[in-house]
């Protein structure tokens, strides 16, 4: 526990000293403020009479219940937060392993009576806590703004935070693996963003497979699809979870498969990163 506490303190102090924390939360705050000022709702007797977004009147068909509006609004917005939170988190935490592995610094960490696996996992958890605090800040703030403006409490919005954190945990494991191997923050960030986009691209694997002339190529794409994290499917899951079961939309139907395969990807990356770090010579 002391090792974890020391790592959390180290990660937070570094984030604060290097302005990462300030930039991280500043960008999030800007986003929240824009959001807060952009939405103006006109509610009469619990029903939405009119809405303005960025000063422009939004067409409201008939009398839309305010609950439905909040649900639709938050589910749509959770998709934006999914990308924003993930990108900010990777940018703020990808350096954790490369910095620790710097010559002259790693000796100070490894000369402690702590196993290497414990050290890297503590650092991973510390990074996750940093990212999680930002996710909570963004989701919590937006939820409160919506609640303040509409008086509607929609707790399903927090499910978006859980899924976003799940994806961050997966991608951070991959960033740690790249960090252990290359000791480079830039490569870690680029490779992790690459995996994110590659995952989105592979969501259309069926179409890619159909376009390929050879069977082994199609098999390769299918295999890659099952190996890589399901970033596109998870984005859909975020929206689907926040919208809830009452939305009868086939696209938003959530299955366990993307979660399971993404979790396996993250677990394998983290296990591999720990194993390589354990074996690495400095």
């Amino acid at each position: 526990m002391k090792v974890l506490m020391a790592n959390i303190e180290d990660v937070m102090r570094e984030a604060a000293a290097r302005w990462t924390l300030v930039a991280y939360f500043f960008l999030s705050t800007i986003f929240i403020l824009i959001f807060a000022s952009a939405i103006n709702l006109d509610i009469v007797d619990g029903a939405l009479a009119g809405a303005k977004l960025f000063g422009k009147q939004v067409e409201v068909s008939g009398t839309m219940s305010i609950e439905k509006l909040v649900m639709g609004f938050e589910s749509g917005f959770s998709g934006v937060l999914y990308v924003l939170c993930t990108f900010l988190a990777i940018f703020a935490t990808a350096h954790l392993v490369p910095r620790m592995q710097e010559k002259g610094t790693i000796d100070l960490y490894l000369s402690r009576p702590v196993s290497r696996v414990k050290l890297i996992l503590s650092r991973y958890l510390a990074g996750l806590i940093l990212a999680g605090s930002n996710v909570l800040y963004l989701i919590g703030s937006i939820w409160m703004i919506v609640a303040w403006k509409t008086h509607v409490l929609h707790p399903r919005f927090f499910l978006a935070g859980a899924i976003i954190l799940f994806l961050i945990a997966t991608l951070l494991a991959f960033a740690f693996l790249i960090g252990v191997v290359t000791s480079s923050t830039a490569v870690s960030i680029m490779a992790t963003y690459g995996v994110f986009f590659f995952g989105v691209m592979l969501a259309g694997h069926a179409r890619i497979e159909a376009a390929l002339s050879k069977e082994w190529q199609a098999m390769g794409i299918k295999l890659l699809y099952w190996i890589m994290p399901k970033t596109a499917e998870l984005a859909t899951a975020v929206v689907g979870f926040v919208a809830g079961p009452q939305v009868n939309n086939e696209i938003l139907k959530v299955t366990a498969a993307p979660f399971v395969s993404t979790a396996i990807f993250g677990f394998v990356c983290l296990a591999l990163a720990s194993w390589l770090f354990q074996r690495k010579e400095f």
């Binding site: 570094e14 000293a17 290097r18 010559k103 002259g104 610094t105 100070l108 009576p113």
Partner: peptide
């Protein structure tokens, strides 16, 4: 390493601390 103290050559104590 429980009771070992180490001072490496050219050590880099994190400068932000």
């Amino acid at each position: 390493r429980r009771r070992v103290g180490y001072l490496p050559e050219g050590h880099k104590i994190p400068s932000y601390l």
